[in-house]
């Protein structure tokens, strides 16, 4: 099989070791970094399709997302200029006090594989830091993740801080995480809620008017 087929399959199977090896070999063979990312993206998109039709479970998707992240980490720095990310820009992080990153990492992988430029602020991000980065990077979407009922209450603080800084109408805010509901997202004034990573992609596409 060609590296193109091998890479997509390795991502699909969540095999990060093979993924890194194949991507490295492709780079040595002078493959275009953008093509490498695209082949990896096909693996994670297929993982999402299998999950939505019930043939894949969440752990399968997580391992596929992690494998794709390994490719991104190695290949994205080699892209010239903006490279990937033509669809739009997203700033994302887990709110203060929340050290969980799995759900957020899946969203990041799905968005990047779908053509979004994503800046990942990581976990345990203070409201003031979200605001500072929104001010600096001017993303179209701000994604907030919370994975515990004890930390989701930090989300309104971020919304308030954006309002105070005069940035609320300059960025669309998406929220997500296991304890959240659409009703809760609406109650804190978020623009969108993603029930899972693929739903988050669909909502962001809709918010930005992207097909």
């Amino acid at each position: 099989m060609s590296w193109e087929e091998d890479l997509g399959r390795a991502v699909l199977e969540g095999d990060e070791i093979s993924t890194v090896r194949i991507a490295g070999e492709a780079l040595e063979a002078k493959a275009n970094p953008q093509d490498i990312l695209q082949r990896g993206a096909e693996g994670i998109i297929e993982a999402g399709r299998l999950w939505q039709q019930g043939d894949y479970f969440l752990p399968d998707v997580i391992l596929a997302a992690e494998a794709y992240r390994e490719v991104m980490d190695r290949v994205a720095p080699l892209l010239e200029g903006d490279g990937a990310g033509g669809k739009g820009s997203v700033l994302i992080g887990s709110v203060e006090g929340d050290a969980h990153e799995i759900g957020k990492n899946i969203v990041v992988a799905i968005l990047r594989s779908s053509g979004y430029r994503v800046v990942d602020l990581g976990v345990d991000v203070r409201a003031a830091d979200f605001v500072e980065k929104v001010q600096e990077l001017r993303p179209q979407i701000l994604g907030l993740g919370a994975y515990m009922t004890t930390t989701m209450r930090r989300m309104p603080e971020v919304m308030d801080a954006l309002q105070t800084a005069g940035l609320r109408d300059k960025v669309k805010v998406m929220v997500g995480g296991a304890p959240l509901t659409a009703e809760y997202a609406e109650s804190i004034g978020a623009d969108g809620y993603g029930a899972d990573a693929y739903d988050a992609l669909a909502v962001i596409n809709r918010l930005l008017g992207v097909a």
Partner: peptide, 14 residues
């Protein structure tokens, strides 16, 4: 563990 005010300690998952 990570300790924060106003919250229970949490495992440092990093």
């Amino acid at each position: 563990l990570i300790w924060r005010e106003g919250s229970e300690p949490d495992v440092d998952s990093q």
